[in-house]
């Protein structure tokens, strides 16, 4: 699905530059992965927890004022952290990711998850009441973002569990 992108990336100097960056010191790959994981934590904080608040209509979570105060800022910081830390790994090995079906699933989930996350945060910003359709939206948002977190892990696992030797 992303083979055109992998073709283009590998024809530029981006792949070499990313490999040089990731290989510049032994601390760089775990450090970049830590930034990525911190982005995941922030997304859990500002997308999944507010969604749980809407779904359960819990007086503690749904009325938690910090979601309204910091939700959007936290969300954009998290997206920035995840994209900037995920990009070097994609650029360094574009064909590895482009040929992995779990990576395509992750990209698809991201396209669905972004507007859902914004919708959830808008519910808090506008201080809407918890209705059944908002609860439905919240539970879909939880499922999509949990799947997104798990997809990140399964990009690596799928390589040796389902298609050993292909990567």
């Amino acid at each position: 699905m992303f083979s055109w992108l992998a073709d283009w990336v590998s024809s530029t100097s981006l792949t070499e530059a990313s490999r040089a960056f990731l290989g510049s010191a032994s601390v760089v790959p775990p450090l970049v992965q830590t930034i990525h994981l911190s982005g995941v934590v922030l997304l859990t904080a500002c997308v999944i927890f507010p969604s749980i608040g809407i779904f359960t209509a819990s007086p503690v979570l749904f009325k938690y004022h910090q979601f309204r105060a910091y939700g959007f800022r936290c969300f954009w910081v998290a997206i920035g952290m995840m994209l900037s830390s995920g990009l070097p790994f994609f650029l360094a090995r574009p064909y590895r990711y482009a040929s992995n079906p779990v990576f395509s699933i992750k990209a698809g989930l991201l396209l669905v998850g972004l507007p859902l996350a914004i919708a959830v945060l808008l519910i808090y910003r506008r201080q809407l009441e918890s209705r059944w359709y908002l609860k439905l939206l919240a539970v879909i948002t939880i499922m999509v973002w949990v799947a997104l977190i798990l997809a990140g892990r399964w990009i690596a696992y799928s390589e040796y569990l389902f298609w050993p030797g292909d990567f």
Partner: peptide, 28 residues
């Protein structure tokens, strides 16, 4: 077996939930 990737996925998920809750607690 497939239990290893399953436990690893659950570990990352549980850790993300814990740190996210800790983030709001510490920020609060």
């Amino acid at each position: 077996t497939w239990l290893f990737p399953l436990f690893n996925s659950l570990h990352v998920l549980a850790f993300a939930f814990m740190l996210a809750a800790l983030f709001w607690l510490d920020l609060g």
